[in-house]
Simulated scan of single mutants.
Amino acid sequence: MSTTHEERAPVAQDVLPASPLVELIDTHLYMPYPFRRNPHEPAAAAGVDAWLRTTGLSDEPGVAAMICHTRPAELASYNSPDADPGILQLVAHQIAYQFVFDDRAEEVGRHRPGRLLPMLGESIAILRDDAPPGTPLGAALSDLYRQVRERCTPAQAARWAWKSREYVHGLLYEAVAQTHPSPLRSGLCTSIRSLTAGVEPFHPLCEAAQPCELTSEELHHPLMRRLSRLSADAAVWIPDLFSAVKEQRAGQMINLALAYQRAHQCPLPVAVTLAIQQINRTIREFERLHAEIAPELSPSGVGYVDGMAGWIRGCYYWSRTVPRYADAATEVLR
């Protein structure tokens, strides 16, 4: 499979043949980053299973099956192929936690967003005030926060908590959007998606994997802030392509391809192609800004940006094979 695909002009509805979703994505998506995986992936997978048992989350209904279908350690391995075993395990734990948290939030808030408030309030209290947890999900978050503080500097842990609170708030926005009577405009959809993706909380872990903490000048450089945004957007929009059919059937709203479909009233193949073109522009801008800022970066800064690029690569290769999106491999788009 080629990993470098050039952007195509917008494809007219009448010339798009019926084709499997994965074939359509592979044909049009620009992916300059080759497949890689971390050699410590098997140990990380075993560590996730042990952690979920220890926290009690594996005893919650549906969690064990969901973890089998999402393979958090595999996603961590593809995103962080050079990470040491400790960072890889922490990334895998956080991915597993967010999968559980996201599915629970969708289940609880599907029809009544207000039912999410106790769950989200507990999470914010833990992240902001170090409050004691009252549920297994809260206990897992509290333990995850402990792991972050043990591995990260205080400044990195504070950035992790701040980005994690943004993610929690985003799930409430998503629940409200799902029950809104009018279709969401594309801009609002992508804004909510950037929060619910939960990618940016991992960027402090990318920093923690480096030899030194980034300087304030590097971390707050305008190009670095833009790279962070581009990485998070591309990383979450790519799985949206593979989940579009599944989420269309489920009546989901917060998906880039489905947002294009609503905006243009077009068939799903056209909408997926338009979404791919937006992702391609995002990845190309990431490449361009990466090259522009690289001469100014310290070795840790270079590694930090490489870590953000890893999320773009990892989400693509994980989405292609993960059982959660298995229907994408056989789905014919018409």
Rank of each mutant, 00 (worst) to 15 (best):
S2F: 01
R8L: 15
V11N: 03
A12E: 11
V15L: 07
L24Y: 12
T27A: 14
H28F: 10
P34K: 06
P34S: 07
F35D: 04
N38C: 03
H40W: 03
E41S: 00
A44Y: 00
A45T: 04
W51H: 01
L52T: 07
E60V: 10
P61F: 01
C68M: 11
S77N: 03
D82A: 09
D84H: 03
D84K: 00
L90C: 05
L90F: 04
F101Y: 15
D102S: 13
E106W: 08
P113G: 00
R115A: 14
L116I: 01
P118K: 01
P118M: 00
E122W: 07
L127Q: 04
D129T: 05
P132Q: 02
P133R: 06
G134I: 07
P136Y: 04
A139P: 07
A139W: 08
L141F: 02
S142M: 05
Y145V: 14
A158H: 06
A158F: 03
W160F: 15
W160S: 07
W162E: 11
K163C: 13
S164A: 09
R165C: 11
E166L: 13
V168D: 05
G170I: 05
L172H: 04
L188E: 14
S191W: 07
R193I: 09
S194R: 15
L195N: 09
T196L: 06
A197M: 13
A197Y: 11
G198A: 03
V199G: 02
E200S: 11
P201Q: 01
P201T: 01
P201A: 00
P204R: 03
A208N: 01
A208I: 05
C212K: 13
C212T: 12
E213R: 08
E213Y: 02
L214S: 01
S216W: 02
L219Y: 14
H220E: 11
M224A: 11
R229P: 04
R229V: 15
R229L: 15
S231G: 15
A234C: 15
A234E: 15
I238T: 15
L256Q: 13
L256S: 13
L256F: 12
L256K: 12
Y260Q: 14
R262E: 13
Q265T: 13
A271E: 12
I276L: 01
Q277P: 03
Q278R: 12
N280H: 03
I283N: 06
E285L: 13
F286Y: 15
E287M: 07
A291V: 02
A291R: 10
I293W: 09
L297E: 02
G303T: 02
Y304V: 08
Y304L: 07
G310R: 10
G310H: 08
I312Q: 07
G314T: 10
G314H: 08
C315M: 12
C315H: 15
W318L: 11
S319Q: 12
P323L: 10
Y325F: 14
Y325G: 09
A329I: 05
R334F: 13
